[in-house]
């Protein structure tokens, strides 16, 4: 079976700063991979490479059978990959000039040439699924942070992606709204969606992840089943990181 994501010896620089060092990582269909690590460790950059929001300098990256060449080469593959890979951002990035429903309908109509009727039905179904079917005609600014992030998830799902990327999806939320977003993600995982999640929510990682990856200074230091990584970390950097985040 082919991997949905395959990274081999991948390197990424921001100027002179070496942000991703020789990354080897594969993700299988249906797998939920949670990436943890300190701020600035390169974990967001890693998943942003998967849909080409960041270019990388050397190595190999194959997503859904399409080879994404270094330095932004192969635009055609990039276009194909983005149709198959959904992304949810820390800051939601909803389109403020469109209603909630129009936010979700935009890509299916523009990219997949869905008719308005079909796109509308998809939007309504997805909004119900994330529990905000009654907010369809509001504008994003009229919604709470948790609701906005659920719209963002619905918007990504409308393209029927084969892989979902989550870049710290709960980091910009008030504490009381984190749960409702994690619930939606948990459901999604249960239904078999392939997911790569960057998060600081260790409880979620332990419960939902098939595999936890710890990144330190641009390198994958440790990976494994959540229970193994959390209860019995092998690398001393992982131990130090976990003792800091799990202490409180």
């Amino acid at each position: 079976m082919t991997h949905i994501v395959e990274m081999k010896g991948m390197n990424k620089y921001f100027g002179k700063l070496h942000v991703l060092k020789n990354i080897d990582l594969t993700v299988e269909p249906g797998e939920v991979v949670v990436i943890i690590g300190a701020s600035g460790s390169g974990k967001s950059t890693l998943i942003r490479c998967v849909n080409g929001l960041e270019e990388y300098e050397s190595g190999k990256l194959v997503v859904d059978g399409q080879t994404l060449a270094p330095k932004g080469g192969n635009q055609k593959a990039l276009t194909e990959i983005r149709k198959e890979v959904g992304m949810v951002f820390q800051q939601f990035n909803l389109f403020p000039h469109l209603t909630v429903k129009r936010n979700i309908m935009l890509a299916p109509m523009k990219v997949k040439d869905n008719s308005q009727v079909v796109a509308n039905a998809t939007a309504e179904r997805l909004l119900n699924r994330v529990g905000i079917g009654n907010q369809a005609d509001k504008y994003p600014s009229q919604l709470s942070g948790g609701q906005q992030q659920r719209v963002a998830i619905a918007r990504a799902l409308a393209m029927e992606p084969r892989l979902m990327l989550f870049d710290e999806p709960t980091s910009a939320l008030d504490p009381e709204m984190i749960g409702e977003v994690l619930d939606v993600m948990r459901e999604l995982a249960k239904e078999g969606m392939t997911m790569m999640v960057v998060t600081h929510e260790m409880g979620f990682a332990r419960e939902v992840a098939d595999r936890v990856i710890y990144i330190h200074e641009g390198q994958i230091v440790e990976q494994g089943k959540p229970d193994d990584v959390f209860d019995n970390p092998q690398n001393e950097r992982t131990q130090a990181f976990l003792s800091r985040v799990l202490a409180h």
């Binding site: 080409g52 983005r82 992304m87 951002f89 389109f95 935009l106 890509a107 990219v111 990504a156 393209m159």
Partner: peptide, 20 residues
């Protein structure tokens, strides 16, 4: 982030610009 959201949904640069 608006451009990134558009591109990540599969819209082209031109589509992202004119509709978002």
């Amino acid at each position: 982030g608006q451009t990134e959201a558009g591109l990540s949904l599969g819209l082209s640069r031109t589509q992202t610009f004119w509709s978002i």
